[in-house]
Design a protein around this nucleic acid. Structure first.
Lengths: 224, 224
DNA sequence: ATAATAACCGAACGCTTGTTCTGTGTCAAG
DNA sequence: CTTGACACAGAACAAGCGTTCGGTTATTAT
């Protein structure tokens, strides 16, 4: 029977796919067959072509034969102007926030993720290591964040006055989204809704800042 | 003095720019110099090159000389997977909503607009004629919409139960964002914030539905 | 009128690049 | 062992394509 490693895509295919992606990101256009060969240690253009055919049959990329550099990634196309932000989990009042593991940003191939046009991003955050969380429950309404909203965060353990942060109040066993202000006797966590009162946190209470909120997205799909 | 029409970009430049854009949309890759020539009635490749140089100097496109089809539009790159939604104005409690004029969707070249990844869109709304409004003031907080948020709307004069709509209550002289429910004696306009009470509108009161809310985007730029 | 300049044409040149063809070594099934 | 896939190499070919250069025409400033 066929125990050949040739099931699905192999290491070589991965490498080519990855190279196309990074090359495209850097040069704004796809690489040529020969360039792929060089950077993937394939000494023959025909072999690269061979792999490209397979990748096309497997649906990983589309090709325009005859057109120079006529290839594009499908499905997972981190097209120049978009950021793919992984949705790492949910955020709700009663549970800690799932913060990204150390080197978690590289390996989110077909996971759950949201795409953001970079033009929507505050300039400073472009290309940063962002992650997203889906809001579960109504517990964040005082931050003007609804059930089902997606919050996009930048990992951070500190904050400046005025930043909206996601914090874990270990003594209250609570996760919240609040504007952060440092006061002389502690911290003031200000709800986004101006009609609601802030939470005052004394210096001895433990606040764990998990990240700064960069963006909130609310999709109005079908009822609620 | 120079009264030559050669100030800025001319008709020919526009045509080339337009062709590159439409070609890219159709073929997923830029056209060659010769293809531009054919479709813009320019019989010499050197002339196309001549115009391309000018467009590059004017900042309308970038070029990778020597690389086949090495050009890309700058500034206004409606890249395959994105929607460009025009921001038609602001929405605030005290004023009516600026709804789009009849054929307003075609001519928003360099106006204010936001780009949305189509993958974020509810499937049904893709490619539809959407418009965006920037929220001004805190008057929409009961809809969980903050000052500075961007709401993306689909033009509509009617709504189904559960839709979030932008309505103009002419008798109250007020614009609001509410969930829409039809009741036997009128309409119920339900705030998104579940702690707040709905507005009951009697049948004789006039409610003008201006559009359904498709998405809300909140950018946390710098303080507030 | 004249010189300068912008707009434009056509052809030739040559590099880049995808394609194709022949050939080699490996591995598993029969 | 033989057969036949699969993975791979290398060379040669031809088409695609950007570049360059000599030349022409119209418009404008002097």
């Amino acid at each position: 029977m066929m125990v050949r490693k040739s099931k699905g895509i192999g290491e070589r295919h991965q490498k080519i796919l990855g190279f196309i992606e990074s090359y495209q990101r850097e040069h704004k256009h796809p690489p040529s067959i020969r360039e792929i060969g060089e950077h993937c240690e394939i000494s023959s253009t025909s072999v690269v072509n061979y792999y490209l055919d397979q990748l096309e049959k497997s649906g990983y990329l589309e090709r325009d034969r005859k057109i120079s550099r006529g290839m594009r990634l499908t499905g997972n196309t981190p097209l120049g102007d978009m950021l793919r932000v992984p949705v790492l989990g949910v955020i709700q009042a009663g549970e800690p926030i799932p913060v990204p593991a150390n080197a978690d940003f590289s390996s989110f191939t077909s996971e759950d993720s949201v795409e953001i046009a970079t033009s929507l991003m505050p300039a400073k955050e472009k290309g940063k290591e962002l992650f997203a969380l889906k809001v579960q429950g109504d517990s964040m309404i005082d931050a003007m964040v609804n059930d089902g909203d997606i919050v996009i965060l930048k990992p951070s353990q500190e904050a400046r006055n005025g930043d909206m942060v996601a914090v874990w109040l270990s003594e209250r066993n609570e996760t919240t989204l609040k504007y952060f202000y440092k006061e002389k006797d502690g911290y003031r966590l200000q709800p986004a809704n101006p009609t609601m009162k802030p939470i005052m946190v004394k210096k001895n209470e433990q606040v764990e800042i998990k990240g700064k909120v960069v963006m909130v997205i609310r999709k109005m799909d079908r009822l609620n």
